[in-house]
Nucleic acid binder design. Structure first.
Lengths: 211, 211
DNA sequence: TGTTCTATGTAACCTTTGTTACCAAATAAA
DNA sequence: TTTATTTGGTAACAAAGGTTACATAGAACA
């Protein structure tokens, strides 16, 4: 594990901290689709992403979903931190977007290291910073953009996160993540295809040029 | 200032910290409508709210606004903290919702106190926690609620924050804060009046029963 | 007092998005 | 191979919300 740690976090954490992390944490490999956290769960650990990606989703009272943002290499879940500080339940759902490796740090260490290591403190604050900014961007898209623009953003982001211009997602799944309906998404995707920006196939979408 | 400080923060900060805050901070009284921060501004201080309320707004590229949340007594602006840590410009606009008193702490002290005072550390993390949760609630309303529900929430929240069941706001102003149009808001307000939930007057709205 | 400005009410219409229904193609299962 | 299921295409319609236009009432003010 220490190698994985050094590769992803060696440039920002001092050796003593890396050692401590290695001692108390567990290394986990999650297959794509694995549900890491459900709404209402109590939080037991803080994930440090080593590779892959985790998607973070919000749900309303009717069970409708909305994709909030992705966690990637070098990220951690600020939502987790806020939860464990307050001993409250998770407000979000977290699912592996693709095969993912992460290091799970026990929450009790989090506060301890904040006083002990400056680099850890910076990391924690930077995470909050990043997460608040991701949330602002999410708000921007849902408040200010129309569904066609949101769809294009979604396709771009999906391709970036998965490092693949072919998206293996059904129209229904896209509709869930954007909190829309399958028919609307199919309609807009067809329009994008007619414009030569994507190619539609059963169970996958090829991005041609979304610039 | 030390009295104001003790009244609002005495229960959570130790005396030594209260003393330090009093020494390096400035006390400010803002009239309702005062613009405390504009998008693009560099952040010079961290506000500790003593009384009143500050509304925090987001703007898109076309200049359209959206109300994100209110800061009240005991709150601080996490967005400010993230900005000053990263030396970046403000992502939001902050305007006094009503007459407001606050203590402005220089940003350089923020990090220093995090190592020095446990209570300050808790306060900072709690602020992040609160802000992330407010952002989630904001996302919930704009993503999952229709405009009539959002309007009712807005009226309730406005009345709560201002401690007044009479709202002194024009339909146009409400439309800006909800990122809608005046005609739509007038239409929905009229519907609420017909249902006996509010009374409409020129330049003010009286809440009768929104439960 | 008459004039001007601002806030609100309302009708008519348009666009976007969501819903229902049905069909066909692709795939999986029997 | 036949049947069932999943996925996607499309039409027709409904609803929410935005736009334009215009009228009127109250407030401000000359």
């Amino acid at each position: 594990m220490i190698q994985e740690l050094k590769k992803s976090y060696g440039h920002q954490f001092e050796d003593a901290l890396l050692q401590e992390i290695a001692q108390v944490s567990t290394f986990r490999e999650l297959p794509a689709g694995y549900k890491l956290m459900e709404i209402g769960d109590y939080v037991k650990g803080m994930p440090l992403l080593v590779s892959g990606a985790i998607k973070v989703l919000r749900e309303d009272k009717d069970g409708d979903e909305l994709l909030l943002y992705y966690l990637e290499k070098g990220d951690t879940c600020s939502m987790t931190m806020t939860c464990c500080m307050g001993e409250t339940k998770s407000e979000i759902r977290a699912i592996a977007e693709r095969d993912t490796k992460l290091i799970m740090v026990p929450i009790r260490k989090m506060e301890e290291w904040i006083t002990k290591y400056k680099s850890w403190r910076n990391f924690v604050f930077e995470s909050y910073h990043n997460r608040l900014n991701e949330m602002l961007l999410t708000i921007d898209t849902i408040a200010f953009d129309r569904m066609d623009e949101r769809l294009v953003s979604h396709l771009k982001e999906k391709a970036r996160v998965n490092k693949d211009n072919v998206l293996y997602q059904t129209h229904q799944e896209i509709a869930y993540e954007l909190h829309s309906s399958r028919v609307v998404i199919s309609r807009l995707l067809k329009k994008l295809e007619r414009l030569g920006k994507i190619e539609l196939h059963r169970n996958h979408i090829t991005i041609v040029d979304l610039s």
